[in-house]
Simulated scan of single mutants.
Amino acid sequence: MSLSEAVGLVLARPARLLGVEPFFAEFIAGMEERLAERGLSVLFHVVTTHEEEIATYRRWAGRALVDAVVVVNLTADDRRPAVLRELGLPTVVAGAWQGDQPGTAAVPTDDYQPVREAFSRLYALGHRRIARVTGPAELVHTRTRTKALLDSCREAGIEPMLVEGDYSAESGARATAELLGRTPRPTAIVYDNDVMAVAGLGTAKELRVEVPGELSLLAWDDSTMCQLTTPALSAMRGDTYQYGMSVAQSALELIDEGEAARRWSPALGFVGRGTTAPPPGEPAVPGAPEDPAGAREEAGPQGPGEPVG
């Protein structure tokens, strides 16, 4: 039974990133739609550290301001689920989490297989020098994506290039310039979000590196920004809006029943546009599409073996 008529969401990250990154806007919109059906809303707060985030939870619990909370961007040895359990706040973890405590549910993402798919798409086009601009290294999903790329490269007998970013345009531009300054430089770069990818495309243009003639680029979390660049950015696409709705559904089940059905975030799939092509002098592997737009594969409605909804 809802008491406060709100579900809390705290983001520990620089507020300036929220104005340019579409992911959380879509995620929150999905949450709001599902919660509104029950007369609830999202209580949203931005802080800079996890300590401030935990202090927010303590304040919310003390004042009974929320009926449940959603935790995002888990890190290794994350304290937040345990603190929320002590506070007695029903909690939905959005992302990979192995815990199994009463009053806590997870809507995990598959961060491994989509990286393998992204790699296989680029490898099939003929790329052998593949780089990735990652999100913050302490995040669990960053580590999972990194492992997926390392495993793929090891199996293919090639060496990956990794540069850490922080999801900002500045870090995407900086990492791209660093990678393009290497000898040999990569022929393909995968970015952990759309903002860094758009910035990377701008940097490549400034350095007069032709995309996709000399360099292929692939963004994570497709967005309108990716579709409006010139050329339009190829991306790994998932249904972020549905993800938010699924998380909200789990929160409602926790509020009502104390437990939630197991569900996954929607799967990601490759969407080829104008920034992926064979590298210079390397025709695509037989059987791989010459035109990456012809390789379009929409994200499926479910994760590995688990339904969404």
Rank of each mutant, 00 (worst) to 15 (best):
residue 90 P to I: 01
residue 87 L to M: 09
residue 277 A to H: 09
residue 248 A to Q: 02
residue 222 D to Q: 12
residue 223 S to K: 08
residue 39 G to N: 03
residue 77 D to P: 01
residue 201 L to P: 05
residue 201 L to I: 09
residue 135 G to T: 05
residue 207 L to S: 06
residue 173 A to C: 06
residue 25 A to F: 14
residue 239 D to V: 00
residue 99 G to Q: 10
residue 123 Y to Q: 06
residue 13 R to Y: 09
residue 163 V to K: 07
residue 232 A to R: 09
residue 137 A to E: 12
residue 216 S to K: 07
residue 260 A to Q: 04
residue 3 L to Y: 02
residue 102 P to C: 08
residue 89 L to S: 02
residue 286 P to D: 10
residue 185 R to K: 13
residue 292 P to I: 01
residue 140 V to S: 06
residue 35 L to N: 04
residue 101 Q to V: 11
residue 148 A to L: 04
residue 234 S to H: 07
residue 36 A to M: 10
residue 107 V to Y: 00
residue 168 S to N: 11
residue 218 L to V: 11
residue 137 A to L: 11
residue 300 G to Y: 01
residue 61 A to G: 05
residue 117 E to H: 09
residue 93 V to D: 00
residue 18 L to W: 11
residue 73 N to Q: 12
residue 197 A to F: 09
residue 34 R to W: 00
residue 39 G to Q: 03
residue 151 D to Q: 04
residue 307 P to F: 04
residue 86 E to L: 09
residue 168 S to K: 09
residue 33 E to F: 04
residue 235 A to G: 09
residue 96 A to F: 07
residue 225 M to W: 14
residue 125 L to Y: 03
residue 103 G to S: 08
residue 172 G to V: 09
residue 199 A to K: 06
residue 113 Q to V: 10
residue 195 V to N: 08
residue 197 A to E: 11
residue 255 I to W: 00
residue 146 T to M: 14
residue 183 T to F: 11
residue 164 E to H: 12
residue 251 A to G: 03
residue 55 A to I: 06
residue 308 V to I: 14
residue 78 D to P: 03
residue 12 A to H: 13
residue 157 G to K: 06
residue 305 G to K: 00
residue 86 E to V: 04
residue 159 E to G: 04
residue 86 E to Y: 04
residue 266 P to A: 08
residue 153 C to E: 05
residue 225 M to K: 12
residue 149 L to N: 04
residue 253 E to A: 10
residue 239 D to C: 03
residue 86 E to G: 05
residue 186 P to Y: 10
residue 231 P to C: 10
residue 68 A to W: 00
residue 87 L to I: 08
residue 201 L to K: 06
residue 226 C to G: 15
residue 224 T to N: 10
residue 97 W to I: 02
residue 141 H to W: 08
residue 15 A to D: 13
residue 60 W to V: 02
residue 164 E to M: 02
residue 159 E to Y: 02
residue 121 R to H: 13
residue 137 A to Y: 02
residue 223 S to P: 11
residue 69 V to G: 01
residue 128 R to Q: 13
residue 187 T to L: 07
residue 109 T to N: 09
residue 50 H to S: 13
residue 88 G to Y: 03
residue 215 L to N: 06
residue 148 A to D: 02
residue 269 G to F: 05
residue 175 A to F: 07
residue 46 V to M: 09
residue 45 H to S: 12
residue 156 A to K: 02
residue 39 G to Y: 01
residue 22 P to W: 11
residue 154 R to A: 13
residue 51 E to V: 12
residue 86 E to M: 05
residue 20 V to H: 12
residue 166 D to F: 07
residue 298 E to H: 07
residue 96 A to R: 10
residue 144 T to C: 01
residue 4 S to G: 01
residue 6 A to P: 01
residue 148 A to R: 03
residue 218 L to F: 11
residue 292 P to S: 15
residue 71 V to E: 02
residue 234 S to I: 08
residue 83 V to E: 15
residue 174 R to E: 15
residue 37 E to Q: 15
residue 9 L to A: 01
residue 290 E to I: 12
residue 212 P to V: 10
residue 162 L to A: 05
residue 27 F to Q: 05
residue 120 S to V: 00
